[in-house]
Design a protein around this nucleic acid. Sequence first.
DNA 1: AAAGCACCTTAAGAAAATCTTTATAAATTC
DNA 2: GAATTTATAAAGATTTTCTTAAGGTGCTTT
Lengths: 230, 230
Amino acid sequence: METILVCDDDREIVEAIDIYLTQEGYKVLKAYDGIEALEVLKNNEVHLLVIDVMMPRLDGLRATLKIRQESSIPIIILSAKSEDADKILGLNVGADDYVTKPFNPLELTARVKSQLRRYTKLGNKTAVNDSIYQAGGLVINDELKEVSVDGEQVKLTPIEYNILLLLVKNQGKVFSINQIYESIWNEEAIGADNTVAVHIRHIREKIEVNPKDPRYLKVVWGVGYKIEKQ
Amino acid sequence: METILVCDDDREIVEAIDIYLTQEGYKVLKAYDGIEALEVLKNNEVHLLVIDVMMPRLDGLRATLKIRQESSIPIIILSAKSEDADKILGLNVGADDYVTKPFNPLELTARVKSQLRRYTKLGNKTAVNDSIYQAGGLVINDELKEVSVDGEQVKLTPIEYNILLLLVKNQGKVFSINQIYESIWNEEAIGADNTVAVHIRHIREKIEVNPKDPRYLKVVWGVGYKIEKQ
DNA sequence: AAAGCACCTTAAGAAAATCTTTATAAATTC
DNA sequence: GAATTTATAAAGATTTTCTTAAGGTGCTTT
């Protein structure tokens, strides 16, 4: 369950947002000015901050600037100030979203969910791309050593995995049986035809709907095997 | 330099956005309907998508739905439809932001920058932190299924791994041999003493400097085993 | 159409990895 | 000191994975 901090000196707004977000299954913490928000953030694991601009002591923009120096949690700014310049300033200061008052709480909720989806599920460029190789519905996560086809995970033996990874990493490129053997086993391929062919069969049994009519792992007659770009 | 795909059947809007984003130092690719956008995404590394809703062939919402199944890049939806229900639908379908037409290109630019900051610079709540268990120099990464001692990785068999994980997850707590058996094997522990003891020995051989004088995996005589909080 | 070769398939045999049991030694507790 | 618990090494058993053997099917060339 994610925890959301709502910070606004208008207590009615805080209560209203509390009701909607709690209904969505989130845990809601409250603060009524920027200093209090900093304190709550220091003592709790918070996954998203909804913060008003116009507040006593520390206003929302300054608080955002300070929080952004130490934290990467999503920040949604609320403001009665709807001039474009204010929005642009808030977004540039470090906010992920800017919602002008008065707002529909359902829209705010949808924006909260979108930010949390990004923060907790979708991840970012670095985390996502480095070790993921994809060919249509065939996905290999080389960090976790996991393979899935159309969302269903499949179990491969180590040699099966390495052959498939070689081909998915080099989509569109045809590898002869000898090339496959030498890449995976790191030795000269002498009489290895059948060994590789059996592994190919096993891979197809595991990733293809119909191994006799494969949609991923294709043969190029007289040349070798490939996985086509999807 | 990040690459942004702008997709709208209104070519003047595409050109206008191109000017502003290129001025900010981004590389801009263009598409004029959802099908074209999918094609560009397939053949290029794109870091953010700006996409209009109302387009021929494949509209922006359906395109977003499809793209989200295979990609986690930020998506900003543009739309002349400014009803709250439309915004909520777009955000729920998978968009990171929703901007209603007509829009100030400076505001759109600020929102683009905010989304890219999130995607390329700010960290996210990685699952990795949730899957790391540590007891001094003994670290278990349960997502990668990796164990290391003082920075050196050690190879454990599946049963060894599960026993160690149980104990590290519950540091300080003593588990009897029967409790260990029942937790790992999920069956009643009858005559299992020796089986568990052998695995304990093997674990110690792999993680301890001196298995006869273990610093992690301790016995509590007559009670069971534990890994102390370090 | 026939021959030759490449690819496909199945299952058995071999090898490797892992787990459990056996037998006994060492340590702890009463 | 006796009884019990824990520790240990190695053998035996089981499971998993890989390779080989044997033969079938499909494609290409003549």
